[in-house]
Design a protein around this nucleic acid. Structure first.
Lengths: 197, 197, 197, 197
DNA sequence: TATGAATGAGGTTTCATTCAT
DNA sequence: CATGAATGAAACCTCATTCAT
């Protein structure tokens, strides 16, 4: 089965990643076994190791899989033609997507492990993203709410909103009947009341 | 061997629980070993099994241990003489306490496991607490911000603030340099701007 | 099965060591499995790990087991009342003992591994022993062959004789029909011819 | 695909053998992987199996590769114009050559395996070589030391010297700071003292 | 022929749990 | 009642070998 095309290799890599994500999501990273993942991916355990050096890296790979185009949008707001409210509405409605559940779980597991092991890299990465998103929020709010600057540190407010975002994801994760969009709606009302006029 | 008193038994049960909580918090539930816990509790591994049928039940016991008076205050606001702002300030500054870290971790682990296992009881419990806290927030906000009712569903806003609270804890958990009090301060500014006047 | 006497523990440790030595000798250190050793010792694989942290240390333990009273005698010749010839005769006849076979094998395996892994500790240990034995040989030869000093560096000759000793062990190991005593006898004749008179 | 010439096939076989020898020497037979060898030989793992049925046979092939002209000289002393002392000096100085290290290791591994598996063929081969070398030594000594016959069985002495030779190689293998030439020098002094005059 | 992806048995090690003392 | 030695079922990972391409 040699001399396989790169496309095939990449496809297999992705299928392993997908299978691993499913298994990790169902059993948790620690409880999931490589045999589980192999079986889910329809290959042998040994084959996984041609694509990922070990379970830990596979898990990391899964976690980075989050196709967070939305979060990237927040981090680079200049590049997009969208208002704060529009992007926020999109962001919070995305939380309801089923894939998001798995992502939330992977995120939590990853952080639990990182904190436990004192993995500064992961923490730094998180802090960086938080800062970038907060700056993006500030940028978009400034564009939307002209009076926003008065008495508020917009970047810090952005951080607070990002915290709220993760809290909403956590709530939705725990309780699927939770409605992030509604929660955000309430906060938006307050924001508009505070800034507009 | 003399029959040991029930009080003694209960005391030992509690000391095991306390030791387990410490160990679980430090190593995570899966990575913590019964030997670790026994050693931390100053007894033998076998002895634990006289008090808890297995590791899983021991972990469950630990997780219910959280006894945060502050969250109880939110759930029963009529019983206390404190303003929304004061209680909020207290609540967010409490997040900085070192014990809170352990609690956050146990909470996350608990939720991860509960969701994984589809443990409806834990989820219901969480939803109930969220509702009670949201109602408490609404009650206290109404008392503090007289104009708050205008155009806002205060209970829903309470839920949003509770989500923000958990997001802040999550942030602090991941990144110890995070400052929940500051984040909250920004949000409070917005709230006051929106409601006062 | 708790609260076992120290004697029992030590006995078990020794029985594991003995079993491991037998298995290592039969299969070689690398090919021998912990399951083999456990089975030979009549216990479970896990039990071994209460006595030895890992396979490598277990192997090391086996190798140090060699009850080399003879080699110790060479290293401390002042403490014993024996002539060079007598001790040499004893030494080379000991090579024929069946236990020596296993010891030779363990020694060779150990050295192969040590050299491969660049384990300086083992090499140093060997060099030290060689030096001590060589000095012992020099000491005993001086006592026996009064004219030995003439034109010969006795310590270096001691080293050469130690090399001869190991060569003889190697020969006997490879070919059980080899007769170390006879080989040594021939060398002794030469030595006596050279020194006596 | 054109039929590949036998010469090409044999050349490839040899290059695999050479690569395997290098890898085995560096990592040891058990620790060396077929992938290592393939990589060293610049081919694919699968290709090796066209030339050798399995790893074990490949290792066996490597071990027979030793082609030391010096030892052949000892075995056939009539064919060469060299004195005992000269050939001995050459022999022991050759031990210092880096290639010798690999050879020593392969020899030891081979013997370890042969003894383990009761491979009489290898043992017989070794015994034969030892005998031939011993006879060669006897032949050359007789030519050099006219009085050598007196009271000494020269063939047996040759065997002893061959044992010393292997001991020296073993020493040098374990401890690269060992000096076989010096060790031999001391022994030669003794021999000359015993025989000359 | 050569390739190298895939297999899958098997190795070491861990640890929840049991039970003789 | 407590102890802690022992069990033994997995888990992760490696690698000799096969075989589709």
């Amino acid at each position: 089965m040699a001399r396989v095309s790169d496309a095939h290799l990449e496809a297999r890599r992705q299928s392993i990643l997908a299978a691993a994500t499913r298994v990790f999501a169902q059993k948790g990273i620690v409880a999931a076994t490589m045999a589980d993942i192999a079986s889910e991916a329809g290959i042998s355990p040994g084959a996984i190791y041609r694509y990922f050096p070990n379970k830990s890296d596979l898990a990391r790979g899964c976690m980075n899989e989050s196709n967070d185009s939305v979060r990237k949008a927040w981090a680079n707001p200049e590049t997009i033609e969208v208002s704060f409210s529009e992007l926020a509405a999109l962001t919070f409605s995305e939380i309801n997507a089923p894939e998001e559940r798995i992502d939330t779980q992977m995120f939590l597991e990853r952080m639990l492990i990182a904190v436990r092991e004192g993995d500064a890299g992961v923490v730094d990465e998180f802090r960086d993203e938080a800062r970038r998103v907060a700056e993006g929020i500030a940028y978009l709010m400034e564009r939307e709410f002209t009076t926003a600057g008065a008495g508020t540190d917009l970047k810090r407010l952005g951080l607070a909103l990002f915290a709220f975002y993760w809290g909403s994801r956590l709530f939705r994760f725990i309780d699927p009947s939770s409605e992030p969009v509604e929660l955000y709606g309430e906060l938006e009302t307050v924001l508009k009341q505070a800034f507009k006029q």
